[in-house]
Amino acid sequence: MTLTALLLVAAALIGIGLYGALSQQSFVMLMMGLELMLNGVLLAAVGFWSLAAGGAPAGQLLVIITMAVMAVEMAVGFALIAAVYRNRQADMTESLDTMKH
């Protein structure tokens, strides 16, 4: 288990996540893509912390902050989805085209 291998796995997760975030039509699936990208970030951060930074405590804190970002993103994201659905009964990104009019 080398850092390079680890980062490759993280890169794969980020790549798949990016694909998901760009391609999915529905909000919730789009958020899954974002989460998967953050998953890759988590893995890379722990890898750096463990194998390249000699266990500097700030590395662990970075992981926790990333998780906090995920939690915030999810909570606000879902709240927005609920609010949008309540008013427009839409759950697709494209249903919000009307905002442009």
């Binding site: 926790i64 998780m67 906090a68 939690a71 999810m74 909570a75 709240a79 609920a82």
Partner: peptide, 17 residues
């Protein structure tokens, strides 16, 4: 209880600390 779950996610984050 969907509002509760959102509050819960944010609150549960504090466990990490």
């Amino acid at each position: 209880y969907y509002s509760m779950t959102l509050l819960f996610i944010a609150f549960e984050m504090e466990m990490m600390f």
